[in-house]
């Protein structure tokens, strides 16, 4: 199955993924409403993505006391009938990657559903750090990128953490999100949210 593949080396920490995700959830660029979170422990620290991996042996499925989380054998997706969630929080405690969280606008604990097969976060990611691909594809791409770095065939750039999105990038991201959701999205508000987030990290000393 195709899954969200995250390449920490290519992430600029711009937060476009979380902003887009939250826009699709609650109409506001509000990272707390996002089902994907890029965790950052510091400027030079490795990044990690906290997003549902649709595990093969999902801890959330056995944790869920309502039996509303299921592993769909056909599609490979971990699905949630979150309308029936009574928010016990067990899925959040047991999830090994921290992908399950209580969405403020819902009573329920939710996790990424891959937007039904066309993830918005991937569509907006300006640096290609997030992709929607088969494991084999992702593995082969990483291996080839490594060889590129090893032999120095244009791989040097790939080793540096990419820069933050430009104004033009934010406009492209805004139009991609807007186009998908059928609403107008102000690129300024995205850029603002991004800088607010970064400020918060700075204050946290990260």
């Amino acid at each position: 199955m195709k899954r969200l593949s995250f390449d920490p080396a290519r992430c600029s920490l711009c937060g476009a993924c979380a902003l887009a995700c939250s826009l699709s959830r609650c109409g506001r660029p509000e990272p707390a409403e996002s089902r994907i979170r890029i965790e950052c422990a510091g400027p030079d620290e490795p990044l990690r993505s906290a997003v549902c991996a649709h595990c093969e042996q999902p801890a959330c499925v056995s944790a869920c006391m309502r039996g509303i989380i299921e592993k769909d054998e056909k599609s490979g997706l971990v699905t949630r009938r979150w309308e029936n969630c009574f928010a016990c929080g067990a899925c959040a405690v047991y999830c090994p990657v921290g992908a399950s969280s209580q969405e403020p606008s819902k009573k329920a604990f939710t996790a990424c559903d891959l937007c039904g097969g066309d993830p918005l976060c991937v569509a907006v990611c300006p640096s290609g750090a997030l992709r929607f691909e088969e494991d084999a594809e992702g593995s082969a791409r990483r291996r080839s990128a490594y060889a590129g770095r090893f032999f120095g065939s244009g791989g040097d750039k790939a080793q540096e953490r990419p820069g933050l999105p430009s104004q033009a990038d934010w406009e492209r991201i805004a139009s991609a999100v807007g186009g998908r959701l059928g609403v107008a999205v102000d690129p300024e508000s995205l850029a603002d949210a991004c800088s607010r987030q970064r400020k918060a990290w700075e204050e946290e000393g990260m």
Partner: peptide, 24 residues
Amino acid sequence: KCVGCHECLWACPFGVPQFASDGR
């Protein structure tokens, strides 16, 4: 012990972890 969460693949700089049909 593997649950198939793919964290190893995202962390590996070389794309080494593989996932068989059993997802592990």
